[in-house]
Design a protein around this nucleic acid. Structure first.
Length: 275
DNA sequence: CGTTACCCCTGGAGGC
DNA sequence: TGCCTCCAGGGGTAAC
């Protein structure tokens, strides 16, 4: 469910409430998500303050006094994770695996498929954590442009679409936004990455950025006690042009949208608009 | 090395 | 109402 926009919207939804607050405790109900949840995590967190929440790719990083003897809470929502703010002590439902508890609210993690990640990094330098150190460029930074994409892809013979989803190259683009960005740029998801011109990458990079930013903007209104994530700003609040629209007419030319499978993931595209 | 297949896990949808 | 199969927004690992 969460790609970069959903994670960013979650971050923005939490920012008004968590930073500056003291962690009263934590509740760990699942022994492991993708990794084992560190033993003693609740005890380690208690008494620390959340100073800030930052995003790296699809990870949410909670700065818990990292510069003053604390550390970082590393959170990834996986395929089915979502966060919401609940009254402390409110009854947990199935798949509610973790609460970060404050005096008057609690951040609750739900993740039915448990592909998410919940880890602790002691001290500062969280970017050196093995899961974060291998991540590629942030597509919403100035450094990410057509020239960067062209250089990164020039030796790649694989189809462009699965490469756009490779977090070692660039972060945050998942199955929905890869498809939508390629449609927006008029590039076929099947085209070999090293057979796309610099000029076309010059259109693709801004298309990726615009697609992500539009989705963030569409999901950006935060509700008081609810942090959007399980709505999926991708296709819930913002309609998709191609994703999950197999057989429907292309919004531009009317040609039926085609569904194929690439590297184990579904891909949707317009065979006429995208070359 | 680059690329793909498979796996982790649960739940919902649709066929029978 | 039940069972079966397939599918799902992520990503690591192993194998070609």
């Amino acid at each position: 469910m969460p790609e970069l926009p959903e994670v960013e919207v979650s971050r923005q939804g939490l920012l008004p409430y968590l930073p500056g607050r003291r962690i009263a405790g934590a509740v760990v109900r699942a022994p492991r998500l993708r990794h084992a949840i560190p033993s003693g995590l609740a005890e380690r967190l208690r008494g620390l303050y959340v100073d800030d929440i930052v995003r790296r790719g699809k990870y949410l990083l909670f700065d818990c006094e990292s510069g003053r003897g604390g550390g970082w809470l590393i959170l990834h929502l996986g395929m089915s994770g979502s966060l919401r703010l609940v009254p402390p002590g409110s009854p947990a439902q199935k798949h509610d695996h973790f609460d970060l508890v404050f005096a008057d609210t609690a951040m609750r993690l739900r993740d039915p498929r448990r592909f998410g990640v919940l880890l602790w990094h002691e001290g500062r330098d969280v970017e050196r954590h093995p899961l974060l150190a291998v991540l590629g460029i942030e597509p919403l930074t100035d450094a990410f442009d057509g020239d960067w994409l062209f250089a990164a892809m020039r030796r790649r013979n694989a189809p462009i679409k699965p490469l756009l989803m490779d977090s070692h190259l660039l972060v945050g683009v998942g199955n929905i936004y890869a498809a939508e960005s390629l449609f927006s740029a008029g590039i076929s998801p099947l085209r070999a990455a090293n057979r796309i011109s610099r000029e076309r990458y010059g259109r693709l990079a801004p298309a990726i950025r615009a697609t992500l930013e539009a989705s963030i903007a569409a999901g950006g209104t935060s509700v008081r006690d609810y942090v959007h994530s399980d709505g999926g700003a991708g296709c819930f609040q913002l309609s998709c042009a191609v994703y999950d629209r197999a057989g429907d007419p292309c919004t531009v030319c009317g040609t039926p949208i085609r569904a194929i499978r690439q590297a184990g993931r579904s891909t949707f595209y317009c065979p006429r608009c995208q070359r």
